[in-house]
């Protein structure tokens, strides 16, 4: 859990200044927070709420509405599996199934217990012509096969 240390307070202040300087809104404020911390720490919401005199509920309303926001830290490796139509008909389900089995992800969980991996499913990354698409740590893999995927995942594990 994030503590509001002086260092973190400086970071939050910085975000707040940008927000007022550029006439931003709650969404851009939260996007910046997530950029800095990797997720939206609960305490940062309380902090912003007091500073801006906007009820916490409005923040939570926005956070829970948009798929982009996370309240918990993500894994060190981020695997994004595209579930768009083109990827679906070209077998993205099978890829996702095998990632889940390989990483031993518990049902309904996105991040592995050791915090190494997060598997995130997204609606469409818009690279449908090279479906199925899997993005591992921002590197886009097109026409992904289970063989290649397993090699990538196992390669990651060896590196550690």
């Amino acid at each position: 859990m994030l503590e509001i240390s002086t260092d973190n307070e400086l970071k939050l202040n910085d975000i707040l200044n940008r927000y007022t300087a550029e006439e931003g809104n709650i969404i851009s404020l939260l996007q910046d927070t997530q950029d800095v911390f990797g997720y939206i720490p609960e305490k940062s919401v309380g902090w912003f709420s007091k500073k801006l005199d906007i009820p916490e509920s409005r923040f939570y309303g926005v956070i829970t509405f948009y798929a982009q926001f996370h309240m918990h830290p993500r894994g060190r490796n981020l695997i994004t599996a595209c579930c768009g139509t083109a990827c679906h008909v070209r077998g993205s389900d099978r890829l996702i199934n095998s990632i889940q089995t390989e990483l031993k992800l518990p049902e309904g969980k996105e991040t592995t217990e050791d915090g190494e991996y997060t598997l995130e499913k997204v609606a469409c990354v818009g690279a449908c012509s090279i479906a199925p698409v899997v993005i591992i740590n921002k590197k886009v893999f097109g026409e992904m096969t289970i063989n290649r995927l397993m090699k990538e995942l196992k390669g990651k594990k060896v590196e550690e």
């Binding site: 969404i27 851009s28 939260l30 996007q31 926005v62 509405f65 948009y66 798929a67």
Partner: peptide
Amino acid sequence: IKLGAGAFVCGEETALIASIEGQRGM
């Protein structure tokens, strides 16, 4: 530029406007 935050419904005009205003995109 306003970055969407991952909600399909924001493609709908009035939801998109709500989102630019910083609210839930409904």
